[in-house]
C-alpha cells in the first residue's frame, strides 16, 4: 500500500462547545473514528451516523464486530469522530480499506495526531473537526451494531484551507460540499440553535 503524506502540519486546535456538534455532523459528512484500547490507537472510516439529540449532544453510529475498532469502542466506551476535508479523500478511502489488526494505520498513512482532552483516543490533527465521544447507550449494539455516543468535547482546525466536507454515496463514490445556502433569516422556530462554529 502506498504511503501518503498529509498536508498542512503543525496546526493548533480551537476548542468548541460540545453542544455545537450538530452543526458539524447534521449534513452527514464521512468521518474517521479513532479508538485506543489501552495499548495502541486505531482508526477507521465510517459513514453510517446521524445526530440524535441536542442536549446532551447524542450521535448514533454503526460500528460492527467486523470492524477492528469495535472491540476497543465496546471495551473502553470512548472514541473520537474526526471530520476530514475533501483534500483527504484518498486517505479516507485507504484507511477504510485496511485493518488495524494488520497495520498501524497512523504510521502507515502518516496521520498526525493530538492529545484529546477527555478521552484516550487521539485527535486527528489534519481533520477539520474532532469530536470526543463516550458511549452513552449500547442497548442496540447487539441487535443493530448501533452505538449512541455523547459528544463531550469538540475541536476545530481553522488553519485548513480546504473547508468542504466529504459525503459518501456508497461503494467508494463521494461528493464534496457544494454551494451553501444561508437561510437563517427564515428559521423562525429554532432560534436557540442558530450558533456559529
Amino acid at each position: 500500500m502506498r504511503k501518503q503524506q498529509l498536508p498542512e502540519r503543525g496546526t493548533t486546535m480551537r476548542r468548541l462547545e460540545a453542544s455545537k456538534t450538530y452543526r458539524i455532523l447534521e449534513s452527514g459528512p464521512i468521518v474517521m473514528v479513532c479508538t485506543n484500547d489501552g495499548a495502541r490507537s486505531n482508526i477507521m472510516t465510517m459513514g453510517f451516523h446521524m445526530m440524535v439529540q441536542h442536549a446532551p449532544p447524542l450521535i448514533g453510529c454503526v460500528v460492527g464486530p467486523w470492524d477492528h475498532s469495535f472491540t476497543a469502542l465496546r471495551a473502553t466506551g470512548e472514541c473520537v469522530l474526526a471530520v476530514p476535508g475533501a483534500d483527504l479523500a484518498r486517505t479516507v478511502v485507504d484507511v477504510g480499506n485496511c485493518s488495524g489488526a494488520e497495520v498501524d494505520k497512523f504510521e502507515h498513512f502518516g496521520l498526525a495526531t493530538s492529545k484529546a482532552a477527555k478521552v484516550k483516543a487521539p485527535l486527528l490533527s489534519d481533520c477539520l473537526y474532532n469530536i470526543e465521544c463516550v458511549v452513552h447507550d449500547d442497548t442496540l449494539v447487539d441487535k443493530y451494531q448501533l452505538f449512541i455516543l455523547e459528544a463531550v468535547a469538540a475541536w476545530s482546525n481553522d488553519s485548513r484551507k480546504e473547508r468542504r466536507f466529504l459525503h459518501h454515496h456508497g461503494d467508494g463514490t463521494f461528493t464534496a460540499d457544494g454551494e451553501r445556502f444561508d437561510l437563517r433569516d427564515r428559521m423562525t422556530l429554532w432560534k436557540q440553535f442558530q450558533v456559529d462554529l
Binding site: 465496546r74 471495551a75 466506551g77 458511549v135 452513552h136 447507550d137 449500547d138 442497548t139 449512541i148
Partner: peptide, 21 residues
Amino acid sequence: SAQEATKLRRRFPDCEIGRVT
C-alpha cells in the same frame, strides 16, 4: 437509565445485562 445499563455492561462484560424498557 440506558446510560446506567451501559456502564454496568462495560463493567461486567461476562454477564448478560438487560433492562426493562
